[in-house]
């Protein structure tokens, strides 16, 4: 079974040379730590920066340079700043190659729910609805089950949706799962996790073809 960093490490392998990538808050943010050194990737933050670098050294923080999580950041050579409309032009216009975000639920047809739990304080969707409605390549990073042990890979989402039919791939603490026309398809197992474990933790239809390899991370 993987921890959050393990999930991030596995997702980092999906990041390819020349990609512009938008990382959501939480596990997705950790992905930046594991991207290979020998490829060129630029991270976009929807509040208006492309070419995000690491956190600043203490004393170098600048209130005018933050990411979408409102954290102080730095920029790398070649970076650029832009306004919110242009930022979402990059996103809706499909100029961003890969979007990685967290989710509360994903359904077997690729619907995603990650912004609202009825009856609880709703903070808002931020840029998530724009991201999932537009990106060609969306990877969800999440735990396979919720804190009650219930599956988060469902036949149908029970929570209000963020987007419909948009998720292509899910990386969890247990598995790598692809979303196909015929539901979820198991691609890889996390180290020490059996196909049976994954089946039991998946409520939606899960296709299992032949031997399922263990993740190489």
């Amino acid at each position: 079974m993987l921890d959050k960093n393990g999930i991030a490490k596995r997702i980092a392998k999906e990041v390819q040379d020349g990609y512009y990538v938008n990382l959501g808050i939480g596990i997705p943010t950790l992905v930046a730590n594991y991207v290979r050194d020998d490829i060129e990737v630029e991270f976009q933050s929807e509040n208006g920066v492309l070419g995000m670098g690491p956190f600043p050294f203490e004393g170098d923080e600048d209130a005018d340079i933050i990411n979408a999580g409102k954290q102080t950041i730095t920029t790398l050579p070649g970076a650029s700043f832009f306004d919110s409309a242009l930022s979402f032009s990059m996103i809706r216009g499909q100029h961003v190659d890969l979007t990685i975000l967290g989710a509360m639920e994903v359904s077997e047809n690729g619907d995603i729910a990650n912004w609202k739990i009825p009856g609880k304080m709703v903070k808002g969707m931020g840029g998530a609805m724009d991201l999932v409605a537009s990106a060609e390549n969306i990877i969800v990073a999440m735990m396979h089950t919720n804190k009650h042990g219930e599956s988060k890979l469902l036949k149908r989402c029970s929570l209000p949706l963020t987007g419909v039919g948009c998720v292509k791939k899910i990386v969890t603490n247990l598995a790598v799962v692809e979303v196909t026309d015929r539901g979820f398809k198991l691609l890889e197992r996390a180290p020490g996790v059996s196909v049976e474990d994954i089946k039991n933790a998946t409520e939606g239809h899960l296709t299992i073809n032949g031997d399922i390899p263990e993740m190489d991370i």
Binding site: P54, P56, F57, E58, E61, A63, I66, K70, Q71, T72
Partner: peptide
């Protein structure tokens, strides 16, 4: 004032 909401830094 330009207040910082999430002050995140790395160690030298």
């Amino acid at each position: 004032e330009k207040r910082i909401e999430q002050r995140t830094v790395r160690q030298r």
